[in-house]
Structure formats: structure tokens, C-alpha cells
């Protein structure tokens, strides 16, 4: 084996070892220096896209609230014949199947005693049912600002272009505003259930 392995003594100009170690050192420095490459502010460039002006924006459109429940509406069908009773109380005979979960409010805080087809604001100004958001936002002022900005509630359509937004009562039941629980969509598959034969649901194999 010795015969064909080079013998360094054959070739050793002055300083050869020094050169070797300098090369080695430089290589190590270069390699380790890589770690300090700044990776933030991506240097890789995207395509040279032609200029494309932004689409025109359009003011959002308020969708009408869902239609009132035929069972109760119009209110005057029943209330016309009833003498108005402004005393705050638990309702026992009527509307008792409804959930009331809206702080300490009671009916006449919002519904108008005299004009049953209308709501009233704090200053007694009357408001149509379709415009109930004006009433809600008297208390929920922060939500009004968020809603106007598109941050409370849901917008659909275009972030830039025609879009719709919704009134409070489109999503919240005014008598019981918190969201009601929903059935969730199915959970994802676990990695072990994705097999060469496709998706396999092995419920028993886990938990």
C-alpha cells in the first residue's frame, strides 16, 4: 500500500504547511460565517410584475336584517287591545317561551309603550325595527366604532370593491345576544390515519 500512497516528503516547498493551514482556517471561517448571513428582509426577489392599479373601492352596503317573526309581528295585532302597562315585571303568560338574556333590560327599555311597531332611543326618539342598530349602539358604542370600521361583525364580498355588512340583529338575537353554540365540522385526520390506501378512520386505535 505504501508504494502508491504519496509521501509528503516528496513535495514540500517552504511554507507549504502554512498555506494549508491558512486555507483550512479560511474555509472554516467562511463556513461558520454563513451563520451570520442576515436572513431577514428577504433578498430573493419576486417576479417583475407590471404595475397594476388598485381596484376602485365601494362603500359597504348594509344588508337588511332578517324578516321579523310572523308569530309576533306586527305587535299591534295583540297589543292593540291590551292596555299598556309600563311597570317592569317578569312576563308570565306571554312571550314566556323566549329567552331573555340581555343584562337588566326589560321590554320597554327598547320597545315603545305607545307605538308598538317602533322602538325608541334613550331620548324617546322613535326608530323602525330595521334600524334597530341605532338603539343597540347607544350602549355598545365601542362596538359601533368597530362595526363601522368593519372590525366588529362580518363583511362579505370584496375587501376592495362592492361589499356588504350586517346589522346587529342579523347575527345577535336582541333578546339574548350571546352566540349560541354550534355543531363543529369534523376534526382533521391524525397523521397515522393517512395511509397508502387513503384516509382511514381508526377511532379505536387512539385515545
Amino acid at each position: 500500500m505504501a508504494s502508491n500512497s504519496p509521501d509528503p516528503e516528496d513535495y514540500r516547498p517552504p511554507g507549504y504547511q502554512l498555506v494549508t493551514w491558512v486555507i483550512l482556517g479560511l474555509a472554516v471561517v467562511v463556513v461558520f460565517g454563513l451563520t451570520s448571513i442576515r436572513t431577514d428582509h428577504q433578498p430573493d426577489t419576486s417576479r417583475d410584475y407590471p404595475s397594476r392599479p388598485q381596484l376602485p373601492d365601494v362603500e359597504p352596503v348594509l344588508l337588511p336584517p332578517p324578516p321579523m317573526d310572523d308569530e309576533y309581528f306586527p305587535c299591534s295585532d295583540c297589543h292593540e287591545d291590551e292596555p299598556p302597562n309600563p311597570i317592569e315585571r317578569e312576563l308570565e303568560d306571554e312571550h314566556d317561551e323566549m329567552d331573555f338574556e340581555h343584562g337588566t333590560l326589560w321590554c320597554l327599555d327598547c320597545h315603545d309603550l305607545n307605538d308598538r311597531e317602533k322602538l325608541h332611543l334613550a331620548d324617546d326618539a322613535l326608530v323602525e325595527f330595521e334600524d334597530s342598530w341605532q338603539l343597540c349602539t347607544q350602549c355598545h358604542g365601542k362596538k359601533l366604532a368597530d362595526w363601522r370600521a368593519g372590525v366588529h361583525g362580518k363583511r362579505t364580498g370584496h375587501w376592495r370593491g362592492p361589499k356588504e355588512y350586517r346589522a346587529c340583529v342579523s347575527c345577535h338575537n336582541p333578546h339574548s345576544p350571546p352566540f349560541k353554540p354550534l355543531a363543529p365540522e369534523p376534526p382533521p385526520l391524525r397523521p397515522e390515519n393517512i395511509t397508502p390506501n387513503g384516509n382511514v378512520r381508526l377511532e379505536a386505535a387512539h385515545e
Binding site: 502508491n4 504519496p6 509521501d7 509528503p8 516528496d10 513535495y11 494549508t20 486555507i23 483550512l24 479560511l26 474555509a27 472554516v28 463556513v31 461558520f32 454563513l34 451563520t35
Partner: peptide, 29 residues
Amino acid sequence: YNPSFIMPVIFLSIPLAIGIHSVTAMLFM
């Protein structure tokens, strides 16, 4: 063999050996 030809190549393989391993580690690091 021609020592002045092959020896530099052999010497170059030394930093490269350290290089392949450091770079592979850096792939993870």
C-alpha cells in the same frame, strides 16, 4: 504520481471534510 499536482488536492480535501459536516449540521442548526 506527481506530488506537486496531487498534494494540493489532498490538502484541499481536509477543509472540505470539515465543511461537509459543518454545513450538514448547519442545515439543521
